[in-house]
């Protein structure tokens, strides 16, 4: 049975259809989930796609974390469900506290929109399972606030626990340690600035994103306990 992926849509999200198309092209089933939803029961994985959730007002992701769906996303994640935040979705996950650190403005205040080479640093995450560490993938980046920042202690933990999932080959935005993507302690929540959903067709220059989303779909077929009804607050 095809993995069922919920693609979370906030007001201002704009990459949801790319994500749905990419997932369906890889054999998954994808559905849009509006940010007002209070349950994500029934999904095997969740994607928080790129865009400008709530207009990026205040800070990217700062208002999105208050959207009703985020409580359900947090429960899904704590039950081990695979969650991937792409670009603005990564920013939302850090603001929501599901991933450590923050994404600040790019070094030099430079908006970057270009193919980026990223190195897979670990295969121990829902987005890179089965991909040889050291593999270099070409995946587009498209952001102004993608400069990953965290304190020294957090960076030490990320390194020690093998939680840096992707690094840029040529750091385009000033991210600490060249970080392009990280995962949580459970390795089921991944945030990354590159857009794998835009690299699934030779027409747009690269199909390397399919490797990442394919890994997510394989991870998504694993059973989780996330279908349990939400706790009553």
């Amino acid at each position: 049975m095809a993995a069922r992926v919920g693609v979370v849509v906030f007001p201002g999200t704009n990459c949801e259809h790319d994500a749905v198309r990419a997932i369906e092209g890889l054999g998954g089933a994808a559905e849009l989930v509006w940010h007002g939803a209070t349950s994500v029961a029934g999904y095997d994985a969740l994607v928080l796609p790129g865009g400008f959730a709530h207009g990026d007002y205040l800070r990217p992701g700062a208002i999105a974390r208050f959207s009703p769906v985020m409580a359900a996303v947090a429960r899904f994640a704590s039950a081990g469900g695979p969650v991937v935040g792409i670009c603005n979705g990564f920013q939302v996950l850090t603001e929501a506290g599901l991933l450590p650190g923050a994404l600040q403005k790019n070094r030099g205040l430079r908006f970057v929109c270009a193919p980026a080479e990223v190195r897979v640093e670990t295969d121990r995450s829902v987005l890179t399972a089965g991909i040889e560490p050291g593999s270099v993938l070409s995946v587009p980046i498209n952001h102004f606030e993608g400069n990953y920042t965290c304190d020294e202690a957090t960076l030490a933990v990320l390194r020690a626990e093998d939680r840096i999932v992707l690094r840029y080959v040529d750091n385009p935005n000033g991210s600490v340690d060249g970080i392009a993507g990280i995962c949580n302690e459970g390795r089921n929540v991944v945030g990354l600035m590159p857009h794998p959903e835009r690299a699934v067709d030779p027409l747009t220059g690269s199909v390397d994103g399919a490797a990442l989303l394919g890994a997510l779909l394989r991870s998504a077929t694993r059973p989780t306990t996330a279908d349990a009804p939400p706790a009553v607050a």
């Binding site: 205040l58 700062a62 850090t94 923050a102 304190d151």
Partner: peptide, 8 residues
């Protein structure tokens, strides 16, 4: 809790 992100 809202206006500032204590990380940065």
């Amino acid at each position: 809790r809202v206006l500032a992100n204590p990380v940065i």
